[in-house]
């Protein structure tokens, strides 16, 4: 993807010439990608093609071997707390803290940034849990949730961070068709409503009609469509 220079500096997420290698093996061979505000983009690719790697680089969890990642025009630094404030992440492996209830798992995303949860924060968390159909389980611990419920809780967590960029690594993998669609809709609506940029890695081609556009990764390179 070549970014239009006029948009690029202020775009929520811009990757330029991003390469990444694990040791000798290069997984990303130079990725260019620009996400505009309010846009939800699907990232397709077979297993092992580098979706998680790309998201990890875009979220600042991995440093690119070369190339650059900028969020709203500023490069991501090595500081985790900085990067996490700017890029929210639905981790493929889940991100629920076992000793926090579902609701507290949302609140903790703001707590770690030094914020004391207000009643408004709690109301917002409840509202998000409502949206992912987990309101009734807000007080449960993660080990009492099904796999799909955990995944929806993780999505709610990411939405709760209010970051301008949201990366979701296969957030619908263990959901049934209807719930998968609902979650994807929630993410695209989030982009539309808050102006955030959403990048959604998925195997699930059924959800593509919900996103604004699709990019695919294969052999370490990105191309439009699939």
């Amino acid at each position: 993807m070549t970014a239009a220079p006029a948009v690029a500096p202020a775009a929520p997420l811009v990757l330029r010439g991003v390469r990444h290698s694990y040791g000798e093996a290069e997984v990303l061979h130079g990725i260019d990608l620009t996400l505009r505000g309010g846009e939800a983009v699907a990232l397709l690719g077979p297993s092992g093609s580098g979706k998680t790697t790309l998201l990890a680089v875009a979220g600042g969890l991995l440093r690119p071997t070369s190339g650059e990642v900028t969020v709203l025009g500023t490069p991501l630094t090595g500081r985790r707390d900085e990067a996490a404030r700017r890029v929210a992440y639905v981790l493929q492996a889940g991100s629920l803290i076992p000793y926090l209830t579902v609701e507290e798992n949302l609140l903790v995303r703001r707590v770690v940034t030094g914020r004391r949860p207000t009643p408004a924060d709690r109301a917002e968390a409840r509202c998000l849990l409502e949206a992912v159909d987990l309101a009734a389980k807000a007080g449960r611990y993660p080990d009492r949730l099904s796999g799909g419920e955990r995944q929806r809780a993780c999505v709610a967590q990411a939405l709760f961070t209010r970051a301008p960029v949201l990366l979701a690594d296969e957030p619908t993998a263990s959901l049934d068709r209807a719930r998968g669609r609902a979650v994807t809709e929630l993410l695209t609506a989030h982009a539309r409503d808050t102006g955030a940029a959403v990048l959604l890695a998925t195997h699930d081609e059924r959800a593509l009609d919900l996103t604004d556009r699709t990019v695919s990764i294969e052999d370490g390179l990105l191309r439009d469509g699939y």
């Binding site: 985790r80 992440y89 991100s95 803290i97 995303r109 770690v112 961070t161």
Partner: peptide
Amino acid sequence: VLRATGAR
């Protein structure tokens, strides 16, 4: 996870 999601 806490580190990844912004805890120092």
